[in-house]
Design a protein around this nucleic acid. Sequence first.
DNA 1: GTACGTGCAAATGATTTGCGTTAAG
DNA 2: CTTAACGCAAATCATTTGCACGTAC
Lengths: 131, 131
Amino acid sequence: MKQSDIKYTNQRIEILDFLREFDGHPTVDDVYEGVRQKLTRISKATVYNNLKFLAEKGLIKEVNVKGVSRFESNLIPHHHTICLECGEIQDYESEELSEYAMSIAKEIDDFKIGSTDTNFYGICKKCMEME
Amino acid sequence: MKQSDIKYTNQRIEILDFLREFDGHPTVDDVYEGVRQKLTRISKATVYNNLKFLAEKGLIKEVNVKGVSRFESNLIPHHHTICLECGEIQDYESEELSEYAMSIAKEIDDFKIGSTDTNFYGICKKCMEME
DNA sequence: GTACGTGCAAATGATTTGCGTTAAG
DNA sequence: CTTAACGCAAATCATTTGCACGTAC
């Protein structure tokens, strides 16, 4: 299926717009609440189905943290810092790490690498100050 | 709470034994079915509660793949290859990558790193041969 | 003996699906 | 027009919780 086969419905356009403008890594509910401002009649099932669809098409990226799906429109390879206290997620870009991980992955026998994904688990600034 | 505070109930012992002997990354259901062979009356809630508990105590490790929790008793830092077709998970050990990721993580401002986690997404041998 | 763990069933939360209706191309 | 997408409600799946009873230490 080519990218040109994608039907750009109002719902999909609004979801993509929302993700492009959102600063962070929204959950399905975040996207639903956000998009509902403009498309008041959109259903949550449509949000679910479209986020999954758009991720499969490679137009957005899915990030699974602690069993909950989150989404982002930043397609440039990058990493995430995840706070073990409050769950906050921040982007962190290290081209060197991305490339190093890929170079290691290419060496693995009997495995055709597609992409790598590195998360950093720790304590964020806000939670550090609280203690 | 110290490690010595852990109550070693039959249920916990069987769960730990099962994980030590299992070759792979079992889901909660896998563990439940396995442990049930010996402890026929164990409840799934107990399996859930104990897997969570043991992971918090650091006696086992939790691996979240596509929103589903899996567990392993291998505590040595390592990575996972995850097949995008069939979902199969394999361990892959690269001490260099683990150390490199940690060294990068230590440089991040306003973040106290605890651990890093790298996954390789691609196609496994079995699925490659099928095409 | 007591605090913590267990089994069970019910509750919750995330996500998916079936179906009649609607709209994109 | 025709096929894929939508909205809605119901269904499913993973996981958690409340409570009366049982057991590790």
